[in-house]
Amino acid sequence: MKFIVQKDNLSDGSINALLESHLQEMYQHSPPESVHALKSNDRKDTTITFWSARINGVLAGCGALKEISASQGEIKSMKTSRLFLRKGVARAVLEEILQEAKRRNYREVKLETGSSEPFTPAVTLYRQYGFKPCNPFANYREDPHSLFLSKKI
């Protein structure tokens, strides 16, 4: 499948809709205090850049990069539409985000994801790209429902 990954300004609402369904899904797998997916107001944060992957104009998935500091970023909102699972969408979005981190001269990117079985595909992908476990960062706290990962750039 041929898809295009590019920066997205969220104006058409498709990423917001996908992330709202993602948020509801997270509440099925984690207690509310352990859900760190971006809520609607958080998506307006100017330190966050979004990317969309589209196939024939249809949103296949998305991801975001939040600037933590001049040398560090956080990967957020990685989500693939159910219609496009296991087709390389997340991999393509992650590669674009990592390229942007390099362009920004970040020395490290970090992320938080769930620690239970439904998150295994995401964790597997991140490990394939060299992410390793790390301590909580930014405003996160130690949480048995969270896994924190880091990659040096």
Score class of each variant (00 low, 15 high):
T47G: 05
A37G: 11
L38Q: 12
H36P: 00
F50N: 12
E67F: 00
E33V: 01
S34F: 12
T47A: 15
H36N: 08
I55W: 04
E33A: 13
N41I: 02
T46W: 00
W51G: 04
S40G: 01
W51Q: 07
V58M: 03
L65H: 07
G57M: 05
D45W: 03
L65G: 05
C62F: 05
L59E: 01
G61V: 11
I55K: 13
K66Q: 13
L38T: 06
S34D: 05
S71H: 12
K66H: 09
A53M: 02
S69D: 11
D42G: 13
L65C: 06
L38K: 09
K39H: 15
S69V: 03
I68M: 04
G63T: 01
N41P: 02
L65Y: 05
P32W: 12
Q72R: 13
T49F: 07
S52I: 04
R43Q: 14
G57V: 01
P31S: 02
D45C: 03
W51Y: 14
A70T: 13
A37C: 07
V35E: 08
R54K: 14
N56P: 00
A64E: 12
G57H: 07
Q72H: 10
R43N: 08
G73R: 00
W51E: 01
S34G: 01
A60N: 05
C62H: 06
I48S: 08
G63S: 11
K39R: 15
A37Y: 12
R43T: 07
I68R: 08
V58I: 12
G63M: 10
A53K: 01
G57P: 02
T49M: 08
P31G: 01
R43F: 08
G63K: 08
K66G: 02
V58A: 04
E33C: 00
R43K: 09
A37N: 06
L38P: 09
D45M: 09
L65T: 04
S71C: 10
D45F: 04
W51H: 04
C62P: 06
N56G: 08
E33R: 11
S71F: 04
S69G: 10
A64R: 05
K39Q: 15
H36F: 14
I48A: 12
K66R: 15
T47W: 01
A70N: 12
I48P: 10
R54M: 01
D45P: 04
